[in-house]
């Protein structure tokens, strides 16, 4: 049962790995440049899924402060400085991500049971299991700095009772998607140019022509003839 749980609990990894391997295999085995790019895309997509899945929890909401947050005058300062981003990124995320029971690869909280009331369960390995820490952190910072921070600490404490999805991986992968698009565009553009220059986008024919250009002899004489002499 443990094994099944282990496997099922990490199904997002399996999807990611399978997709990645399919993509890589296409890159390895396909001889057509366009298909190679398709494989490359699949390969990159698997990484997108990986990133998205590690940041997502079922029942989690977007990282927007919920509840009574009154200190409007200090909103920007408070938000930007610590209460949310810092608290989440440094303490909550770090400790939360790593499973308490010492399993190497944390199972994803997609499958973990999330209590309906929003009160985080102490055992579930979610991103936001540490409201106490967050509250303490916020309170600790607030005290002795500025009285207006009291309200911030208050808000953070309330916020901690809501389950947030970690936005950072999603933001990161947005960047990666942009990069992926650029790569695909450039790859396809190159394929077009190759087609113009060589008249083909089949890799073995390209290789035969390059080989001929470099060494002056056909790469595979018998094959070259059988195919009507690509070189």
């Amino acid at each position: 049962m443990d094994i099944i749980e282990f496997i099922v609990g990490r199904y997002n990894y399996w999807i990611f790995i399978t997709l990645m391997m399919i993509g890589l295999y296409i890159v390895i085995s396909r001889g057509n440049l366009i298909k190679t790019i398709v494989g490359l895309n699949l390969f990159q997509t698997s990484v997108f899924i990986f990133y998205i899945s590690i940041g997502k929890i079922v029942g989690g909401t977007a990282p927007i402060l919920v509840g009574s947050y009154k200190a409007d005058d200090s909103y920007g300062e408070g938000y930007g400085d610590e209460s949310h981003g810092a608290g989440e990124q440094t303490s909550g995320a770090r400790e939360g991500l790593h499973d308490a029971d010492g399993l190497d690869i944390p199972s994803n909280s997609l499958s973990a049971e999330v209590p309906a009331g929003g009160a985080p369960s102490a055992v579930s390995g979610s991103l936001h299991q540490m409201p106490d820490t967050a509250r303490e952190t916020a309170a600790g910072m607030a005290s002795g700095v500025n009285a207006t921070y009291d309200s911030v600490a208050d808000a953070a404490a309330q916020g901690a009772e809501v389950i947030y999805t970690n936005p950072l991986p999603h933001v990161l992968i947005l960047t990666a998607i942009v990069v992926g698009v650029a790569t695909t565009a450039l790859g396809l553009a190159l394929a077009v140019r190759i087609r113009e220059a060589y008249g083909t986008i089949e890799e073995d024919e390209l290789e035969a022509e390059d080989h001929f250009a470099e060494f002056g002899v056909p790469l595979h004489p018998e094959q070259g003839q059988a195919r009507g002499g690509a070189a």
């Binding site: 909550g92 770090r94 991500l97 190159l190």
Partner: peptide, 28 residues
Amino acid sequence: SFNYLVMGTIGATFYVIGIGLLYQATGT
């Protein structure tokens, strides 16, 4: 250039996966 593109992308993607795993382990 095309070869380099394919290989470079694979390399960069590997790097991103590695960073993702580290982020998962540390949150930073």
